[in-house]
């Protein structure tokens, strides 16, 4: 068999593994929908309330808030997609089976990428429909065609954060499990998600400019406000993601090699 075909079969095998998991675990499947929808309810009704007690200016802000919430969820879910997949193998003591098998790391990561992509597409659609129905906020309508480059950058950045998180899991095991849910919140305050970059102290703005997510959220606000975006605006996000791609792959390789040296790799899930 051609080696490309072999790779594709292994990627399909891993995607199938995640699908089986969902078919088996109703609670896990519902959870994917449950959290973002509940979050949207809270943020949505908060904005409805703010709209009621204020006029004009603020109503724009309300639109940002719901859009930001939906985009934030995209970033968060993309990061979770990879790291939960890895920790799942640790929990079920299956990780050594995979590391001894012909499955290559890149094939594994590609499987998590594809699987997360469709999962997130589903959630985004659902959230947009709810936002439209309950709050008359047309997410696709207000962001339009720009949605594609913006969402792509967020998704890729989240996925890369997930690869970095997975590196930590491979290196340290159970001890760092909490980071799966913590890492996204490390970038949250610096990404100008719920407020414009300009309100941040200058030194935080400098940090923010190194995060692809900042350009996405700034861009989103600009589109909602002005109806368009200069073509070059999102470019830095793509470039930064390119750099972070290299860095997260290197980081993962380093963590894997350390895990092999300390003996953690063979014992993941046993402590």
């Amino acid at each position: 068999m051609l080696s490309v075909n072999e790779s594709l079969t292994r990627i399909r095998g891993m995607i199938l593994r995640y699908l089986y998991l969902h078919r088996r675990s109703v609670s896990r499947t519902l959870e994917i929908i449950f959290w973002p929808v509940m979050e949207l309810f809270v943020w949505g009704f908060l904005t409805v309330y703010l709209r009621a007690i204020s006029q004009g200016e603020v109503s724009q802000f309300i639109v940002y808030l719901i859009g930001a919430m939906i985009f934030w969820d995209l970033l968060y879910r993309a990061q979770q997609g990879v790291s939960i997949s890895i920790v799942e193998e640790i929990w079920t003591q299956n990780i050594a089976n995979l590391f001894v098998s012909p499955l290559r790391i890149w094939e594994w990561m590609t499987a998590t990428f594809i699987y997360s992509f469709f999962k997130i597409l589903l959630i985004m659609t659902l959230l947009s429909l709810i936002a439209l129905g309950l709050y008359h906020f047309n997410f696709f309508g207000s962001v339009g065609f720009y949605l594609i480059p913006l969402a792509a950058n967020l998704f890729i950045f989240g996925w890369l954060l997930g690869i970095a998180t997975s590196g930590l899991l491979i290196r340290w095991g159970h001890a760092v499990e909490a980071l799966i849910w913590g890492i996204p919140f490390l970038v949250q305050p610096f990404s100008a998600i719920f407020y414009p970059l300009s309100i941040l102290p200058v030194w935080i703005q400098k940090i923010a400019l190194f995060l692809p997510s900042t350009y996405v959220f700034e861009g989103m606000r600009q589109i909602i406000q002005q109806g368009n975006l200069q073509p070059g605006f999102i470019l830095p996000a793509f470039l930064l993601n390119g750099v972070y791609f290299l860095l997260s792959v290197l980081f993962f390789a380093l963590m894997l090699s350390r895990s092999r040296a300390t003996g953690r790799l063979g014992r993941l899930g046993m402590d």
Binding site: Y20, S25, E89, N97
Partner: peptide, 9 residues
């Protein structure tokens, strides 16, 4: 010490 995923058939 190594198992196949318990939540799959």
């Amino acid at each position: 010490y190594v198992q196949l995923p318990s939540n799959l058939k």
